[in-house]
Design a protein around this nucleic acid. Structure first.
Lengths: 150, 150
DNA sequence: AGTGAAATGACCCGAGA
DNA sequence: TCTCGGGTCATTTCACT
């Protein structure tokens, strides 16, 4: 599937998507054509999902992270589907995972401050199939990376 | 600080960093020069941290997410600094937050499977100032977004 | 799978409103 | 701050190895 060159391309583009094909080619001791074709292949085959700009949450007033743990008392396929669809549409929810634990879901929510989290929770309480179990406030971010180990 | 045009540029680049300045200019009914200058300003002033390729974790054998909750029994500045430095260097740890809760830290760990998480935990156990409190296995990902609400 | 070259198009920087 | 125009450089394709 992937050879050493592909992995190196992925590693470099995960760190900096603005690298030019020429720069990548130099780093890999190749010309631009094979690098170009490999990138297109990695995109087409789904190794690269997307290229994005990472915005500093603090600078745009979304510096507070809160984890929201919710449980689903009536655990049906329909409830699961409906809830997950709603969550995917909530812009404050950056991440959501279905857990094998005491609570069913964990949501990572990005807000301006605790006051804004309070109003988020109120709107969240309208969703009938889940119950908020607990909220955990983040004191500070230690690490945030989008770079998958290869 | 930021006007409506800046916010629209940030929103678009968060969704797709491969948009050309020309495409952005068309979307905003401007010419390329002001768009170019605004982007440079947003980068220089720290609104845009980075441009990255998002790699599909499943495709490269890192499809299993596990949350690792750890506590720090001896809570000193030195222990905090040392631990956070170690964590930032661990490639399996994608995210780490200092919490205001029952446990002191939550780590989001990306591994191939539970077997690999087991070996991660063993190496983690060598770190003297923390104690693994619990591990929560993810059944499936519901949402993962890097797009901050503007 | 790779090279090298050539056309197309994007980026970037002036001058000017 | 914006528009316009042009020089420079990157991307993309193609013929060949």
């Amino acid at each position: 599937m992937l050879d050493e060159t592909d992995l190196r391309i992925l590693a470099l583009l995960q760190q900096n998507a603005k690298l030019t094909i020429k720069e990548l080619a130099e780093a890999l001791h190749l010309t631009t054509s094979p690098v170009f074709e490999r990138i297109k292949r990695l995109e087409k085959e789904g190794y690269i999902n997307n290229y994005v700009a990472l915005v500093n949450p603090e600078k745009v007033g979304r510096g507070q992270v809160v984890f929201c743990n919710v449980s689903m008392p009536v655990y049906t396929t329909e409830n699961i589907e409906t809830f997950e669809k709603i969550v995917r549409q909530m812009p404050q929810v950056m991440e959501c995972y279905h857990l094998a634990g005491m609570v069913d879901y964990q949501l990572k929510v990005l807000v301006k401050d605790i006051k804004e989290y309070d109003s988020f929770l109120k709107s969240f309480a309208e969703i009938p199939m889940v119950k908020v179990h607990s909220s955990i406030v983040v004191l500070h971010d230690v690490k945030y990376s989008t770079e998958v180990q290869l």
